[in-house]
Structure formats: C-alpha cells, structure tokens
Simulated assay, not measured.
Amino acid sequence: MAGREQARAEAAFMRGDVGVDGGATEEKQDEAEAEKGKAREALLRGRAYLGREFLTWLLWRSESGDPLVEYENEGVKVLYMGRVVLRGVAGDVTELSAKGTLAPYSEQVKHSLDRGLLVSQARLRFTHGEKEYEATVDSEFLDVRAAKLPALMSEEEDDQLSERLFLTEQLAAMVDALVKDFLAVRAGRAWSKQVVPAMKEWMRGDEKGADALSKAARAKGREARAARG
C-alpha cells in the first residue's frame, strides 16, 4: 500500500499537481479556466459543431450550381468563393485556411474534409432572382458578417436606408431558409445512411457522390413541386 501511495505521489509531482512539500501547487487556481474549457468543448460539440456541419453540407450541395431552396417563389443559389476556413477537434492539423476564387471546391479542401475537418467560416455569394448578395458566414452562431448587398435602387437617403434594411433582412431570411432545410435533413433517417456516405464519396472525388447529389437535388425539386400542388 505504502509503495502505491508513493508512486501516486511521485506521479502527482511529475504532473505538477503538488510541490516538493506534497502540497497542492497553484495550478488549482485554474479551476475556472478548466470549466471554461469544458464549456468551450460543449459549444464546439453542440451549436458550433452543428454550424460546421451545416457549412460543410452547404458546400457539397452548392457545387451543382442549382437553386438550393426557394424563397419568395424564387430559387436561391449559393456559391462559395474566396477564403474558406476549416477546423477540427483532433489530428495533426486542427485548422486550415484556403484562399482562391474556387478554393472551397478544390481537391485539397475536399481531402481535408475527408480527414475530419469541417467548414468553420466561408465567404458566400447568394443569388436570388436578379439580385446577388455576398456575406461571410461563421459557424459558431451562424453570424453573417461583412455583407455586400445588391445595388440600391432608391435615390433619397431615407429610402436608401429603408432599402438597405430590407435587403439585409432578405439576406438573413435566405440564410435561415437554408439552415431550416439542413436541419430537416440532419434530423432525418437519411442523414447517416445516405447523405453522409454521399458526402464522403464527394470528398474523395468519387463520381457516385456527385451522382447522389444530383439525384438528391432532383428528388428535392419533385417534393417541392408536389407540395405546391
């Protein structure tokens, strides 16, 4: 027993948990930091992780160039452009940033996704009818940042302010519609059995993944048309 206690004491000393006198070191002061770390981990595996799944799923869906959802009777197309940031929770690489016009759709990004990283932040272009919007979307709270709105049609300053607010609300509503569509898929039975395998094939450059994407888009279109009667 004495030998085991001695071994535990030595291990605690080597970890820095106790000092040479056997008393606890000042590392205990970091209990609050440890709790913050746990909270960050919970957030990462909760809301933020779900946001990363959404942005990764949206990247996969957007490569076809087809409208992804309908908003106010117009299809919404999404294009990833410019810089994209990938993050993960384990492995040799836990963060990767890629820049370039079509960098998000590059083989390097897809291979990184296949190794476990997820899209954490991206610059997106939303096309709704004849209007184009751009915004950086962050996965943590799905914040929309640095938005670029369509050209204003109003000439009066007060009217321009109202129009800008209206367009900002339109952009937020389109993001919400895409998130709602993702959550419906994410909560369904097909997520683990069909969607994730198809995404993995796409990440690996397998044509089946692209075929599955096309089939999913066509099926979604049929469902939307049936719902409208």
Rank of each mutant, 00 (worst) to 15 (best):
M1K: 13
G3R: 15
G3H: 14
A7R: 14
E10V: 12
F13D: 00
M14H: 11
G16S: 05
V18I: 15
G19M: 05
V20R: 11
T25P: 05
E27G: 05
K28S: 02
A32S: 11
A32N: 08
K36N: 08
G37W: 04
K38P: 04
R40M: 07
E41Y: 10
A42H: 09
A42W: 11
R47A: 13
E53D: 01
L55M: 02
T56L: 07
S64M: 13
D66F: 14
P67S: 09
P67L: 09
P67I: 11
L68T: 03
E70V: 13
Y71Q: 04
K77H: 09
V78L: 12
L79V: 14
L79A: 09
R83N: 05
L86C: 04
G88P: 02
G88F: 00
V89M: 13
A90R: 15
G91I: 08
G91N: 10
G91M: 08
D92G: 14
T94I: 03
E95A: 10
S97F: 04
K99C: 01
T101R: 07
L102V: 07
Y105S: 03
Q108L: 10
K110C: 05
K110S: 00
H111S: 09
H111E: 06
S112I: 06
S112N: 04
S112G: 06
L113F: 02
L118R: 02
S120P: 04
Q121V: 11
Q121W: 05
F126E: 01
T127E: 10
G129V: 13
E130N: 14
E130Y: 15
E130L: 15
Y133H: 00
E134K: 14
T136C: 09
T136K: 11
V137F: 03
E140D: 05
L142H: 07
D143L: 09
V144D: 01
R145V: 00
A147W: 01
A147D: 00
A147I: 00
L149G: 09
L149E: 03
S154T: 12
E155K: 14
E157S: 15
D158F: 13
Q160C: 09
Q160G: 06
S162F: 11
R164G: 06
L165D: 01
L165P: 00
L165Q: 07
A173L: 02
D176A: 15
D176E: 15
L178I: 09
L178F: 07
K180A: 07
D181M: 12
D181S: 15
F182L: 03
L183D: 00
L183G: 00
G188R: 04
W191L: 02
W191S: 04
Q194C: 08
Q194N: 09
V195A: 05
V196C: 02
P197K: 13
A198I: 01
M199A: 01
M199H: 03
E201Q: 15
W202R: 04
R204F: 04
G205L: 12
G205F: 08
D206C: 11
K208Y: 08
K208H: 13
G209P: 06
G209Q: 03
D211F: 12
D211W: 14
L213R: 15
S214Q: 14
K215I: 11
A216V: 05
A217C: 03
R218Q: 05
K220F: 01
R225W: 02
R225V: 08
